[in-house]
């Protein structure tokens, strides 16, 4: 039997009837059409599905939609401000931190959490923070530089 889940996604309140086994990832992508959040491994290994749940970087593939009931979710779609890429997104573009782009939404959400808790992270902080987000293309260096640049700009 379906259950009603109420949650706020990128500032908009939603009520969605879901099967109990539905993951937060499936709710976002399939029920709300927010396909910015990617599905990689489905078992916690890659971080492509990272969203912020009540401000905490969360893999949405191992989170049931029911567990997010009453929660506030932020996804990559919510980052742009008034139609313009935000500072972090722009830094990813400017620093060549995006190649195929599959890891990017997850990286952005993880970096968003980091920059909120640690506005001036050093390189080690950044590398530790993104250690659960896999990127098969960039070799990470450009991603680290982009996050550093976004942090500098905001200082």
């Amino acid at each position: 039997m379906k259950k009603i889940v109420s949650l706020t996604v990128n500032g908009i309140a939603h009520e969605v009837a879901v099967e109990p086994r539905r993951t937060l990832l499936e709710l976002l992508r399939e029920d709300l059409g927010l396909t910015g959040t990617k599905k990689g491994c489905g078992i916690g290994d890659c971080g492509a599905c990272t969203v912020l749940l009540d401000g905490v970087a969360t893999f949405s593939c191992l989170t049931l939609a029911i567990q997010a009931d009453g929660g506030t979710v932020e996804t990559a779609e919510g980052l742009a401000e008034t139609g313009k890429l935000n500072r972090l997104q722009q830094a990813f573009v400017d620093h060549g931190a995006i190649q195929c782009g599959f890891c990017t939404p997850g990286m952005l959400m993880t970096a968003t959490e980091l920059l909120r808790s640690t506005p001036q992270p050093d390189e080690h902080d950044i590398r530790m923070a993104i250690s659960g987000n896999l990127c098969r293309c960039t070799g990470y260096q450009k991603i680290v530089e982009a996050i550093q640049a976004a942090a500098k700009e905001s200082s």
Binding site: G44, G47, V56, A57, T58, F59, G132
Partner: peptide, 9 residues
Amino acid sequence: LGSPLVRNR
């Protein structure tokens, strides 16, 4: 343990 995402959940 695991990664930051694993530790958060």
